[in-house]
Amino acid sequence: MTVASDPPLRTAKRPNRLFKNMMAKIASIPMILTALVVFVGGTAWTVVYSFTGSRMLPKTKWVGLDQYERLWDSDRWIISIKNLGIYGGCSMVLTLVLGFCLAACLDRKIRFESAFRTIFLYPFALSFVVTGLAWQWILNPDFGLQSVVRGWGWETFTFNPINDPDTVIFGLLIAGLWQGTGLIMCIMLAGLRGIDDDIWNAAKVDGIGTVKTYVVVIIPMMRPVFITALVLIASGIIKLYDLVVAQTGGGPGLSSEVPAKYVIELMFRAQNLGQGFAASSMMLLSVVIILIPWAYLEFGGRKNG
């Protein structure tokens, strides 16, 4: 009897769920429209026009995959991708490691904690343009670090990363880390503060060392914090542009070009929208390739399992 009477009840409830919180749903319509039109629509438009021969103004002159062929033939694009790979990999690992280590140090109940926290976070308050210019001067061999150390008497000291095509990307990395680590440290610190003291006491009772407790117990517990940090760092890497423009201008030669700069220069300096769109579509594609499996594992996988 119960089996027979149950289904009609459920079907009667279903429309109710759609109209539940009616006001909230109406209120979010503008946001939904914005997301659809601006983000999804704009993305679709860009991808569609990447198959055209648009120059300064968008035109529907279809050229098939020509723009993509040119893109992958272009030395500049290949260099940009490689640079992003090196910068991205190093920046991801080092920011997380340094951010966590700094946070762990501050979490050891040291004196002047808030002073240190402020100092470490301060670079984040600066724009990338200021950071880039400042580090351009610091790394300049004639005025910066190299000349200061030589002035102290170490005459053979050589530290000139940004004028050498092979090392310039590490010059950018130094500036990027200097700017970005403080924020990650603060997020990590908040995560650490969220760990109950009882965990620490339990670890102490069990006789587990401090470092081991961090690695084996605390870090796995901070998984959501790490994911937040990861997303922040990754989005910063993909859109890396202003730091390069301010610090090296892509030079020497093309050795510090990055994909976002390729897109901007092709769209506006070369007045070749089609090529710029093709490059930005490739950037989107690479993000999607990484994002979709991850999102599936993170959200979809859990629901099903």
């Binding site: 120059r55 030395d75 095509p165 030079g251 020497p252 030669g253 093309l254 300096r269 070369a270 070749n272």
Partner: peptide, 19 residues
């Protein structure tokens, strides 16, 4: 030359002069 071609030549020169 169009701006597009000019930028491509400039890129080649930037690469040539610094390598």
């Amino acid at each position: 030359f169009s701006q597009d071609t000019t930028l491509q030549i400039e890129d080649l020169m930037a690469q040539f002069w610094s390598s």
